[in-house]
Design a protein around this nucleic acid. Structure first.
Lengths: 237, 237
DNA sequence: TAGTGGTCTAGACCACATG
DNA sequence: ATGTGGTCTAGACCACTAG
């Protein structure tokens, strides 16, 4: 793969790393344009292009006459930056879902998840590698599309991607709902927190091109272990 | 208000008008960079800057070797490619913010909200008409842009819209962070729930085109009174 | 092959913020 | 008064697309 990057992008990435790693903290000054020109041996235009990228990403703020400073607090490790459709699937890949049980969905399951139909339920924990469990996850899959449990266990990607590969179905949109809830006794115990503790409940409904809900997932993230972060960019008008 | 616009922005606006008016339809070719340079008597850099703005707005698409064309018209409302920007402002209009107090931001305020600088704090409740309070809201506004409290009281739209109207500043993007938290005693009492109750904490940072954070808002929605819902549509590809 | 957009250089003048 | 970022010029070479 030819991954040659333009100079301005390389420099933007270097600076981004300094910010992400905490070497440059919020409020800290970045090199001025002229300093960048000398240190990196580039023209001012190239330096500005790099800084422009970081500005658009919301990482730095620039003020004429004053200078350039870091604006974004370094995202805590548990923060999940999400800005678009693809990154939801990305999260599903990064944080491994470890299924524990599977069974047909009961009426209570369907009501809680807000769907109707013939679904299979997978329950389990979601964790990043080697960490404490991030969340309890429940996934409902349309029975006719559901993968067997043993396949899910060795799944590399997400279940929705497996469905797309195995059945040719295509996820067209995702409706995501987020709210705060109090954890019940059982859930709290599995996550190692007190009953009644706050959690972020994220419900996602995946619909295919025909509008059929092929998958619903519910995640319960206990307070402090996870934050959902997204960047919204203004549209044309 | 400062009416002087840089040359590249004037030209971007001229082209934008051609597209908005339908003179240039989707698929139509725009002038090449060199043509723009000659017709407008500008350097190539300035022409590119104008075209870049339109590219970022998603109005045009550029292909090396091929040229520049007008992209497809704005997608229907239900198919916004991204959990969209406008809907945040919409919420800010629907649920009225009732400010109670204002004061300069303390160091603790700034730390909690993740910003640095000279900000004014507004605290108050947010409620839909006639209902129980939906949330406790805290808003930090850059002092030089802050509206007086009596203006906020009779504000029709959101504070961010007031700023845009009064100062000509333009919100370019919003970073939104959501997590679950336990309510402290004071907050819980104001919302009429028990201390330690779960709440959805939503932190939003509004940045202008220079990356300057002009407004930060924090909302605490007690469990059960509010859910945040967004629809993400898969991109072409 | 001719023309496009992508990258980059080396200058310049300006408005603005800070000391 | 100095230095910052914002704007702009006038070049250059390149990778890519299309006729």
């Amino acid at each position: 793969m030819n991954t040659i990057q333009p100079r301005y992008r390389q420099i933007a990435d270097e600076l981004r790393l300094l910010i992400a790693s905490g070497t440059l903290k919020p409020g800290d000054a970045l090199p001025t344009e002229m300093e960048l020109c000398e240190v990196k041996d580039i023209s001012r235009h190239t330096a500005r292009e790099a800084l422009r990228i970081l500005t658009e990403d919301g990482l730095i703020a620039r003020r004429r006459g004053a200078g350039t400073v870091v604006t974004a607090p370094p995202a805590p490790a548990f923060a999940q930056p999400i800005g678009d459709f693809e990154s939801i699937l990305q999260y599903a890949r990064d944080a491994v879902f470890i299924p524990e049980r599977t069974r047909p969905a009961s009426a209570a399951d369907l009501k809680r998840m807000g769907v109707e139909g013939d679904y299979i339920v997978y329950t389990g924990l979601r964790r990043a590698t080697g960490e404490a469990p991030l969340a309890i996850t429940t996934i409902l899959v349309l029975r006719q599309l559901a993968p067997p449990l043993e396949e899910v266990n060795q799944l590399q990607g997400s279940i929705s991607e497996w469905i797309e590969g195995a059945h040719g179905a295509s996820v067209s949109n995702v409706i995501q709902r987020m709210e705060a809830v109090a954890l019940g006794k059982g859930d709290a115990a599995r996550l190692g927190v007190a009953a009644g503790s706050p959690a972020l409940r994220t419900l996602r409904r995946y619909a295919d091109t025909a509008g059929r809900t092929i998958l619903v997932s519910e995640s319960l993230h206990p307070a402090g272990r996870f934050a959902y972060e997204m960047k919204l960019t203004r549209q044309r008008k």
